[in-house]
Design a protein around this nucleic acid. Sequence first.
DNA 1: ACTCTGATGTCAGTGACTGCCATCACTGTA
DNA 2: TACAGTGATGGCAGTCACTGACATCAGAGT
Lengths: 182, 182
Amino acid sequence: MELYAERGFDATTVAEIAERAGLTERTFFRHYADKREVLFAGATELQELLVRQVDQAPAGMPAMDVIGAALTAMATEMFAEGHDYARQRQAIIMANADLRERELIKFAALGAAVAESLRRRGVTDPAASLAAEAGIAIFKVAFERWVSDTGQRSLAQLMLDSMAELRLVTHPEELASDESSG
Amino acid sequence: MELYAERGFDATTVAEIAERAGLTERTFFRHYADKREVLFAGATELQELLVRQVDQAPAGMPAMDVIGAALTAMATEMFAEGHDYARQRQAIIMANADLRERELIKFAALGAAVAESLRRRGVTDPAASLAAEAGIAIFKVAFERWVSDTGQRSLAQLMLDSMAELRLVTHPEELASDESSG
DNA sequence: ACTCTGATGTCAGTGACTGCCATCACTGTA
DNA sequence: TACAGTGATGGCAGTCACTGACATCAGAGT
């Protein structure tokens, strides 16, 4: 992380990382599948947490409500890791095309895992996929705001906001008077 | 494409591709940014077509309707490339993690471009992003079905189906009697 | 014949990643 | 203590994607 922040991702060699970490290049690749994985090590925990939330949601709850509850729960529990750390990591990721790719694959894996969890709840197949994708979209928007924001609002709150906005988009006939002000 | 299909993506070296194509390895990299790009060369055209459709949609049309019209138009115009070719390419892509990553980045670029196009129409920022993401989700589901299907139904029809299903997920209160039968 | 330009070939190099084998710390067993 | 097994690590050589620098060559214009 230090080296990536100092000189950028591309300009950092695995040999340098290994040296700074006090181990061999060979050993580095035994811990991380590739150079990028250093930045995405926590993604699996995040996925497990989200899936657990969906699995444990009360039966009969509508799919999007389950998603919403899981997302806000994740936002509260998970991102105690710190706003600054998340921001630095995100800056590194956004500065490099390969890292952006890897981030997308992580999101996709998240979506797939959530969809599978929804299916376990009895949600039918297209609905499960679409609800999961919508959830990921909500998460992306909220997370992006949280990172680029000065840090005033909590990730959980931003998650709720972005969820409400998705409803506005897909249910335009429900809107009262919000259209002209947004 | 031949080599990828014959012996797999990983087992195919750029040197082999260059030899089969009758050119140098160096020249290959002048045409394609990397080894994967061979399979995604057509993605830019697809993106331009989609953006053009959104840009040219009548003013005042709701965002999701614009997306829907653009997607079906794209489905009709674009995928005259052939079902078999698309299926072979998709098999190659799904068999390799790096290729799946690249596909996701292409989808993300598509989404970003569509969102930008929606913003040019005056759609406000969160709505534009979310509508675009929803459009991509619709496209993914429809495309996946089209590829894995025996080829009976057109991509355009599958696109309409998946779009209707997204509405069902996000507007559960509208459903008439479909829930128990799906 | 000359020049300019763009596409290609040639060559050497960097760096990510892998396979193979030796080493070493640690654990359980006699 | 001695011994064997196991898991993590180091060391080393190799493959291969990808890049930069330079030479070459074909075609267009003059």
